[in-house]
Simulated assay, not measured.
Amino acid sequence: MKKGKLIIVKFISYFVILLFCYAAITKLLDFEKFQTQISASPLLNGFSKFLPSTIIIVEFLIAGLLCYRKTGTTGLIGSFILMLIFTGYTALLLSTSKNLPCSCGGILEKMSWQQHLYFNMGCVVLSIIALSLNLKYSRPAE
């Protein structure tokens, strides 16, 4: 049973690695557009000078942490926190304004804000599942 649960953790970790690397690379490839979209947000425009670079670096950093067993738990915590922030931001935008450009990049950019909210909530749930399984089953038995 333990092996199956750890496979779930690995699968979710690989999904998050792919998601964050894909998102970061698409943002990086069209950085000016990403920066413009961030500055178009009434909630983020004051941070548009440093936030785009910070988001890309954090996405790559979390993906990197998830690649190694010793840093996997830290990566899962980071992915949970980042997806929670993205989910909160999306929910706030849905409640305040509906005509803002999405700054996710690539295929994710094609989603509506409502679809983004559900997708992000799903990612938060996956992060919680992976983190709880990882904490429970990856430690040596006492």
Rank of each mutant, 00 (worst) to 15 (best):
M1L: 12
M1C: 07
K2A: 04
K2R: 11
K2H: 03
K3F: 10
G4M: 02
K5Y: 12
K5W: 11
L6S: 04
I8H: 01
I8P: 02
V9T: 06
V9A: 06
K10P: 00
F11W: 03
I12A: 04
I12V: 10
I12N: 06
S13A: 15
S13E: 01
Y14K: 04
F15C: 12
F15N: 08
V16A: 15
I17M: 14
I17S: 10
L18W: 14
L18I: 13
F20V: 05
C21E: 11
C21I: 15
A23G: 09
I25R: 07
K27R: 13
K27P: 02
D30A: 05
D30M: 00
F31H: 06
F31A: 08
F31L: 05
E32S: 11
K33L: 12
K33P: 00
F34R: 01
Q35R: 15
T36H: 12
I38M: 08
I38G: 08
P42Y: 08
L43R: 01
L44P: 04
N45H: 11
N45I: 00
F47D: 02
F47S: 14
S48G: 03
K49I: 10
K49E: 05
F50P: 01
F50N: 00
F50M: 06
L51Q: 08
L51W: 07
P52D: 03
P52W: 01
I55E: 05
I56E: 00
I57E: 04
I57A: 15
F60Y: 15
F60K: 05
A63P: 11
G64P: 07
G64S: 12
L66V: 07
L66D: 08
R69Q: 12
K70F: 10
T74V: 04
T74R: 04
L76K: 07
L76W: 08
L76P: 06
I77M: 06
G78A: 08
L84H: 03
L84A: 15
I85M: 14
I85K: 01
I85V: 15
F86M: 08
F86G: 07
F86V: 02
F86L: 08
Y89Q: 09
Y89S: 09
T90F: 02
T90P: 05
T90Q: 04
A91I: 11
L92T: 12
L93V: 14
L93S: 07
L94D: 06
T96D: 00
S97N: 11
K98Y: 09
K98R: 13
N99G: 15
P101S: 09
P101V: 04
C102A: 03
S103A: 14
S103W: 04
G105A: 13
I107A: 09
L108G: 05
E109S: 14
E109H: 05
E109N: 15
K110M: 03
M111W: 01
W113G: 05
Q114S: 14
Q115S: 07
Q115E: 15
Q115G: 08
L117R: 00
F119Y: 03
F119G: 04
N120F: 05
C123H: 01
C123F: 08
L126D: 03
S127E: 02
I129N: 10
L131S: 10
L131F: 09
L131Y: 10
L131H: 01
L133E: 02
N134P: 02
N134C: 10
L135F: 10
K136Q: 13
K136D: 06
K136R: 09
Y137S: 09
Y137I: 03
S138F: 02
R139L: 09
P140K: 13
P140M: 06
P140R: 09
A141L: 15
A141V: 12
A141M: 11
E142P: 13
